[in-house]
């Protein structure tokens, strides 16, 4: 029982990451009709916002280690600590949450530049062209990151106060062994907040209403004198921010490296396809469904019955769902069927 509970928590946590990435992916597809293979790279860039801010905050005074003579080795003390003592230490400790403030404008800007500078030129081109150009863009972005930050993962710890585990079992009357990392719980709540904000934005604002109308019938909305293009550009920027925030908050869970976007990209596409191309609710539901299934399939009891099931479960489910519901869980008729 405890094991199943923990795996469901794992699934929710994984699902939260899948859902956040897939949400932006499907939003871009639903509005602009673009299959954006650079979306994973946006997730990675978000994580590197956290790395960058951490690097900036830990710019250090270097004191040479005189015992090393063959090369220059330093003991580093961040200036923030030297200047502000405990306050400086606390600011460094909170680098990841603080980088959200940096990531929002930066990712919005990156998204707008990507859309205006490159992707808009491919709206009328076949999906294959869009895939090639966005995939190429993803490779360029990740190689740039590799050039500046190296190929090795970079440790990006959460604040000390939430670095350990929460006694979830004690809260719920389960065993003492049922503990779960605070940061993963925060990640889940954060993703819920972002998903709710995106839905609220699309459903409770005039801007969102126009976007949704444009997703249904772009031509008619245009005939009403509304500049749908401009709004869709902003939607692309919002999708970049969502992916970026997902990356920022994921940095303490998975020390960022230049390839992390690619690792998530394939899974996110499976999530979008299972959820239904262009369906926001579908992406979220499929994200959580696949996250939970993947976690449960990794249990030793399940693997002893079906060896290797943990590695294929997501693709197996995708095959079954596409056979039973070719448009995905919540796919709409007419979307991605031309």
């Amino acid at each position: 029982m405890d094991s199943i509970f923990l795996q469901i928590l794992n699934g929710l946590d994984k699902g939260a990451a899948y859902a956040l990435i897939a949400l932006g992916l499907t939003l871009v597809f639903g509005t602009l009709g673009v299959v954006n293979f650079a979306h994973g790279a946006l997730f990675m860039l978000g994580a590197f916002c956290a790395v960058s801010l951490q690097s900036i905050l830990t710019i250090s005074k270097k004191v040479r280690d005189e015992s090393i003579t063959f090369f220059e080795a330093y003991k580093e003390t961040p200036y923030l600590e030297l200047w502000w003592g405990d306050t400086g230490t606390m600011i460094i400790d909170w680098a990841v949450p603080l980088s959200i403030l940096m990531a929002i404008p930066l990712m919005l800007l990156i998204g707008l530049i990507m859309e205006r500078g490159l992707i808009r030129h491919f709206y009328s081109r076949p999906h294959a062209d869009q895939i090639l150009v966005t995939f190429g863009l993803a490779i360029v972005l990740q190689e740039l990151i590799k050039y500046y930050f190296g190929a090795n993962p970079i440790p990006t710890p959460p604040p000390d106060i939430v670095a350990g585990s929460a006694a979830v079992g004690a809260w719920l009357g389960l065993g003492d062994n049922v503990v779960y990392p605070w940061w993963r719980l925060i990640y889940f709540l954060f993703s819920m907040l972002i998903i709710a904000a995106v839905f609220a934005f699309l459903h409770l604002t005039t801007f969102g209403m126009v976007v949704r109308a444009g997703m249904h019938d772009r031509e008619t909305v245009g005939l009403l004198g509304i500049n749908v293009e401009k709004r869709f550009t902003i939607v692309f920027g919002i999708a970049a921010v969502v992916a970026g925030l997902a990356g920022v908050m994921y940095a303490p869970i998975l020390p960022p490296d230049y390839h992390m976007g690619m690792d998530f990209l394939v899974l996110s596409f499976v999530v979008v396809v299972v959820g239904g191309m262009g369906s926001l609710g579908g992406a979220v539901a499929a994200g959580f469904l696949l996250g939970i299934l993947q976690s449960v399939a990794s249990m030793n009891e399940v693997k002893s019955l079906l060896p290797g099931i943990d590695q294929i479960i997501i693709y197996l489910v995708a095959v079954v769902i596409l056979l039973v519901r070719p448009r995905g869980l919540m796919g709409r008729k007419g979307v991605a069927e031309d």
């Binding site: 405890d2 094991s3 923990l6 795996q7 928590l9 794992n10 699934g11 946590d13 994984k14 990451a17 065993g175 062994n177 049922v178 503990v179 993963r184 869970i253 998975l254 992390m260 690792d263 998530f264 993947q294 976690s295 990794s298 249990m299 030793n300 943990d310």
Partner: peptide
Amino acid sequence: AGDFSQYITPVLN
């Protein structure tokens, strides 16, 4: 695997 949480949680019990 990236995220190893599903392999680490069984260790707890």
